[in-house]
């Protein structure tokens, strides 16, 4: 029971308290790049969730199956990048074959995730926090859900910004960056949620 409680805690903390975009500042590139419309933001979020969960599992196995026994942990970064890039490619092929609808919905976002630092970030954090396999998996899912939450909220705000009367020098990206900053401040409010 205590274990389930801990997993729930990991999930909650990675979604809200240690939100990847808002407090760890990872995955800012897609966060700003594909947040112009809610629809695409949801697509990106779904793709990231899928890849992060898979990456958490595989990198965990690689870390404790290969790197630790051979005592070559310093290769962690490059091996993880290799694993993630390969994984994304593989997943893309499988999805294209098995579900053309999902493939169309995810579209270009799937390959884009290869270079998403949040995916690498979650893999490394899993190791640093010394999570076990289940915990790593849930940390990955939580981080991705947090990313999705942030990007969808942000896209919603940006859609409204398009239509509002904004001073000319702030139009477009400047106001988006300010908005992101304010959102980050708001997410800071979750810090005291768990002691």
């Amino acid at each position: 029971m205590e274990y389930i409680g801990k997993i729930f805690l990991i999930l909650l903390s990675s979604i809200l308290i240690n939100n990847f975009v808002m407090s760890r500042f990872l995955g800012i590139c897609p966060f700003l790049g594909v947040s112009k419309r809610v629809e695409t933001a949801v697509g990106m979020g779904a793709a990231v969730t899928f890849v992060m969960a898979m990456a958490s599992l595989i990198t965990y196995i690689v870390q404790y199956g290969i790197l630790e026994p051979l005592n070559i942990q310093y290769l962690q970064t490059i091996v993880f990048i290799l694993v993630i890039a390969c994984l994304v490619q593989f997943v893309e092929m499988v999805i294209q074959k098995s579900s053309p609808t999902l493939y169309k919905a995810l579209g270009v976002y799937l390959p884009l995730i290869t270079t998403n630092c949040a995916v690498l970030g979650v893999a490394i954090i899993n190791i640093d926090e010394k999570y076990d396999l289940i915990q790593a998996l849930f940390n990955g899912i939580g981080a991705a859900l947090g990313f999705t939450l942030a990007i969808v909220l942000f896209a919603g705000i940006r859609e409204r910004l398009e239509l509002s009367d904004i001073p000319k020098p702030l139009k477009g990206f400047p106001i988006a960056l300010i908005t992101a900053g304010l959102m980050s401040v708001a997410f800071l409010g979750f810090q005291g949620l768990i002691k």
Binding site: V62, I66, L67, L70, I72, L75, I78, V79, L82, V83, C86, Q89, F90, M93
Partner: peptide
Amino acid sequence: SLGGMGLLFGILL
């Protein structure tokens, strides 16, 4: 190990 992994992933893909 790195080369092996790369090769393995390559073949897999």
